[in-house]
Each structure stands twice: as C-alpha cells, then as structure tokens.
Design a protein around this nucleic acid. Sequence first.
DNA 1: ATAAGTTTGCCAGACTGGCATACGAACCTA
DNA 2: TAGGTTCGTATGCCAGTCTGGCAAACTTAT
Lengths: 403, 403
Amino acid sequence: MVSPTPAELRARSPRSAIVSASLAGELNRARVLKTLYAHGPLPRPELARLTGSTRATIGQIVQPLLDDGVLEELQPLASGVQGGKPARPLWFSGDGWPVGAVLVLPRGVKAAVVTAGGRVSAVTSSAFPAGADADDVTRRISATLRRTAAKSGVALHGLGIAVGGMVDTEAGEIIRMDLAPVLNGLPIGRIVQADTQVPTYVDLQPRAQALGDLLFGAGRGERTYASVYIGEGVGAGFIFDGALHRGARGAGGEVGHVVVDRGGPQCQCGLRGCWEALVNRRWVQRAAAEAGLPDPAAADLAALAALAPRDQRAAAVLDECTENIALGIANLQQVLGLSLFILHGDPAGAGEPFRMSVEQAVRSRAFTHPGGPARVVLGTADDIAALRGAAALVLSQALHIAF
Amino acid sequence: MVSPTPAELRARSPRSAIVSASLAGELNRARVLKTLYAHGPLPRPELARLTGSTRATIGQIVQPLLDDGVLEELQPLASGVQGGKPARPLWFSGDGWPVGAVLVLPRGVKAAVVTAGGRVSAVTSSAFPAGADADDVTRRISATLRRTAAKSGVALHGLGIAVGGMVDTEAGEIIRMDLAPVLNGLPIGRIVQADTQVPTYVDLQPRAQALGDLLFGAGRGERTYASVYIGEGVGAGFIFDGALHRGARGAGGEVGHVVVDRGGPQCQCGLRGCWEALVNRRWVQRAAAEAGLPDPAAADLAALAALAPRDQRAAAVLDECTENIALGIANLQQVLGLSLFILHGDPAGAGEPFRMSVEQAVRSRAFTHPGGPARVVLGTADDIAALRGAAALVLSQALHIAF
DNA sequence: ATAAGTTTGCCAGACTGGCATACGAACCTA
DNA sequence: TAGGTTCGTATGCCAGTCTGGCAAACTTAT
C-alpha cells in the first residue's frame, strides 16, 4: 500500500494495461527474478530454457541487474562431461536490495533488514508496555525501526509491515486486531512511511507469510497453494497461479471465522461454530486441562506431540486437534482445488508424525481427483520466516514478482 | 482442454513466458477484447482511455479484427455538444466467431451455437434414455452436436462443454457425476474433438457459468467474484482478478461438500454436515413436506417465494433456506474477501425479495471491512446463460481473455 | 601438445509492435 | 463561411526481443 498502491501497480500489469516494449521489458525482468526465486541460483542458459527465451535475451535482461548490484555471478560450475565453457550461476548479491521487514503482533513489534536474497539481519524486537495507548504503540514501532536501521546502516528500498489482524491494504491501515484492540484503526502505513520516507506496504501476516514462502520457503516453484497460520488466532494467505490473492482492499484470509459447526459454541467474533475456536491455542489448552494433562496453560501442539508417545491422554487430544485442523483445510481443498498447504505457527513445531497425520486426515476428507491429493508441509514456528514474508511484500511489488 | 491444454496456454502467458513483441501484440489484442466484453460496444477513443493507450495504437490493434470479421463498426454515435467527428463504436459482428456450446447434465444434453457477441442460436436438446450406458450417452451427445451444427450451417471455431459434475480439465474427462454415474470416467473431450475436429474444452458447469458471467452476464466489469450454482447439486466458479481460477487439473469448486455442520447428518459423499445437504433442492422439498405445504415434491425456491407472502409456513421454510445459503456464501466471503456473488440455478428464480434477504444475511455474517459489504445478485434460472458459459470456455482460451 | 567438439556469453543487425506527432475528415456553433 | 472539436489514420521513432555469428573456456581424443 501507500507508495504505489496495489491498485496502481495493477494498472501497470498486463492484465489491465497495453503492453508496450518498455512494459514488456519490466515484465520480463520480473519473470527472470521470479524464476530465480523459484529455482535458486541459475546460469543464463538455464534461465533461457525455463523462460522459453534465448541466452542473448537473458544476458541483455540481467546485465543491468548485475551492474546495479541486485544480482551477482557465483563461482563457475564444473563443465559437463562433454566439456564447454563453465556456466556462472546468477543469484541475488549478498547485500543487494535491502528492505525493512516489520512484524506487528498483539504483544509487540519485531523488525529486521532482509536482502533480496533472503538474508535476515539486524533483528530487533520490542514489547508493547501493558496498558499502552495508540500513541505509545506508534512511538514504540518507530523507535524499533530506527534501532533496526541504525544497526544495519544501509539505505532501505522499502518497508513491509505484516500485521496479525485485519488490514486495509490500499490505505495501509490496521482495521481490527482482536488481541490488541488498541491498534484498531491505526493508519500504520501512512505513519511509518512519513517517518521513514520509503515506500511502505501493509498486509495481513499470513498473506505476507504466503509470499515469503513463495520467494524463500516451501512455496518455491509451486504455482498454487495456501499458507495457513495457526496460533492464538488463525489466518491464511493464498497464492493462485504464482500471484498473491488479495480480496477487495485486503479483505479475506479470515479462515478462522469460517463456520464449520453451525449451532456450535459462540465465538468471540459473534458467529457460532468458527473453525478458529476448534484449533487455536486456547482450545488446545482447554482440551489439555480437561484431559488432566500436567501444566495445561503451557500446552501447545509441540508439547502435545512430545508427550503423545508416552501419554495416551496427550495422544487423544492431539488426534482431536489433527481432525479439527484437517476439517478446515479439507474445506479449502474442496473449494479451491489446492495442491499444497503450508502450516505455520504452532503446527510447525509439532514435527513430522503430526504433519503426516494431518495430511492423511485431509486426504481422507477431500475427494480424489487427478489433480492429485493434497500435500501438507510444515513451515516454521519462529519469526524469521514471517520477517521474510514482510520483506516479500516489498520485493514482490517493487520487482513486480507477482502481477 | 485437449487442443492446446490450459497448461500449454499458460506457457504462452506473460506469467511464465518472456514477452516478445509478437506476444505483446497477442496480449494487447486480448486486452482490447476483454475491455469490450466488460463495457459493451466502445469507440476507439474510449478503448484507448480504458486501456491507457492511444487512439493510434487501438486502431492498429482492431484493424485486423475488423478485416477478419470478428469485430464490426456500429452506427456512429451522435457528436457531443462541442461537435467533432462522430465516433463509431466497435462490437463483435453479428455472425462473428461462432463456437459450439454443450451442456452435459445428469438427465440429458443441450447444445447451441454462440457467437463471440453472445448471440445464441440453433439450440437443441436431448434427454438420455432411461438405463442408458456410456455408449448410448456418447452417441446421444454426438447426434445432438450434429443436429446443432446442421441447423446453424456455420463452421465452428471451437467447442465448450460444461459438465454438471467433477471434471479433469487437462484430459477433458468427466471424473464423477453423482446424479448420473454412467458418465463417470467418460473422456468426453477426446471423443467430441475426434468427432468434430475442432478444439474442445471441458470444464465444470459453475466454472463455465462464471466465465459466461464475465463475458455476458452480471460479472461484466467486475474483477473478482464467485458464481454459485444451487440446484439438485451445488457448485461454484471463481473469477480472481479477471481470470478464472482452476484448481489443479480443474479440481475445486466443490463448495457443496464444504463441511458447515460437523457432526451433522451424513451426506451421500461420505462426509458429515456438507453445505449442499442444507441448500439443495431435496432439502427444500423435505422442508416443504415437513412444514405441511401442498405438493412438496414440486417445491423449489421459486415456488416458496411465490407462496411466502400468503403462507407463513412457506415464509418460514424460505427464511431457513436463506440462512443456510447465506452461511456458505459468508464462509466464502470470509476466506476470499470477494465483493460479489452471482447466484444461478434455483435462487435465480426466487425474485428480488429473496435476493435481498440473502444479501442481508450474508452481510450480517461477514466482518465489516473497507473492501465493502458483499453484494449478492441473481443470475438466470434458464440454460441460455449456461450455454453462453460453455461458449465462454472457448472464447476465453482462443481470444486469451483470461490469462 | 595439438586438434576437434561443446558450451557459454556477447555483439550486431533484423524484426515487431507500441508511441508521439501530425493531418485530413466529419461534425458542431456562431 | 469560419473557427473549434473530435475521430481515425499515416509516418517516423524507439524499446525490446530474436536470429545468427564469433571468441573464450572447457572437455576428450589423437
């Protein structure tokens, strides 16, 4: 949002504008960079093959990027058995195109500098003081950003802000953050952009995460998938055909409040039977307490998974979690025909056996189709991937990766 | 599917290929045609404005289309108050680009010829004989196509087949059609293409309908929406950012089997608490019977809506239907942040009061967001729109409307 | 060591298609 | 009839990709 808004960028995409030679050049540069993200370092001939172009054209496209220090040539590869000049793979240069990444969570803010190649540095975090008002929070965010910028000492090309709540991506505002109502209505994009004077993009955290997966994570090389976050709250970001799906002004992604049990218990959002109520951390804790497990207030999926092999009660709770999570994911699979689901947050810490049982449960709930069974993979439980996701908000817009 | 498969066409899109001058030309031609579909007949200057291009460029793009008889110039418009040369709007010529449209439903087949401008002619239909096997059905479909082609007497540029069941869009096969299991596994695309020797595309009927809405219906000029079909079965097609969303090989769109009432009654699909079970025609009939309404076997939403003003029991059943339909639509709204839902099938015949109450119910279930409240509009209950949808399968691929 | 073959990376020219500009045609009002 | 406005098109320019060719760097075979 804010600097060129997504709507403005859309106007420059081939979907809505006539493609002139110069726009074609821009699109092709984006195409090359996207191919690099999807496959990792690649030499020119391979880029030509993957994009259906020629070595000469690829050379022409990447030369300015090399000159500008966005890309660099890695060590030459060994020649093949038939000989030939060794190819030099291209990749994002170590300090090329640094952008700022900000994570705004209910309890605090985390910031870092991320390069186009995905290197994370200068991580800084700060908790919001108890009872803070909007001004306190704003000041805290600004201070954290300044600390981050000072630590890294480089000029940032943009700022991506991932917010754990409902956002307006055009205006760059936080609409609603149930776990930290003090942030409701905060025009964080405008404030930060005025403060830092660099293009700033605000989006939902799971959506940023999905973009992060596309560039740096389990979504590399995938065309269509969903990144699902499960923690205190629940959310999802969708990549359709290589591009991030944003609903109108960033609506959507509220998979937590999909009704899967109409007539079920009242959710804090006002609806009945929301999926979130069956899978969030609070549910896990209550189920752990009811099952008589030790220290239920500290229970989460990782703890349950660790306990399950030697505690039948933990195994039973974990099984129920598995079914609940699979229920919502299978719904998405039925509707959208996705082939991949990347789970972030608490499930990411629960290990391979848990992943497998979720995958099994999803498959047994969705129809068989030649499109193939759903795959479920685990993302990361730490915040590094989320920070990369926030950075991906900038990279994807600035480099036109997703159009 | 089949002729150039969707995958092959994707390879020619700017999403995955380098944009050369000639590909740019193709894309721009598509852009112009898409703009015409979105806005109706437009003169060159207006096309230039809407595409961000110039009159000269638009003239260059449309000239070959005029020469080939795809487009034609309509009567000149009256000049504005300031005078000036009258502009001549462009539109698809009356008999330009005829394609075949086929609707394969559980009980029979319907075919027609549809021009690029949306004119439907030579409608032919044929019921499957009771107890027919796959060969009978295949013969019946081929015969219907021959009758249609003979009636119209023009050479078709392609064939679109909309199927009321699960399909494999790459292979052009019917995977599963619960209400007519005899069709399960039928490679209808291959058969018809061999028979007719024109490029053939097979897709899910609600998805074809969504494309039909984009070119000829309530989706014109909209960027993102869902077309939902509710009848004996339930399905949906999604337009995201002006392009049809197909899951892997045409999976997805099975919104009927989203679980909204886990622990609810068993659905014929094997799951419990599917949305379909709460909104399909059978539910309406059973509810009508339980409410003691006359002739419950003939009850549908249109009949209930007609009866509701003078029969409290009918009104009560209709209200419950409204809530059930809104439940599933609100789920889609929460997940995808769509701004528009087009209802086809039985709801389309139930009139404006019904539409309004569904819209109200959806709005009260989804969160408020600057993206705006969901709009619900009614499509059509007849098969003309579905036939146009089948034709749109061909048009969208051949003219690269959605890429 | 030399030769032949292979692959990489780049240069020069051809080609394509959009863009800026200009101009005639068709219409208005005064 | 003159002056203004808008439409549609012809002309030359320009940016970018594509084709063909060539030197450099590496292999294996003689």
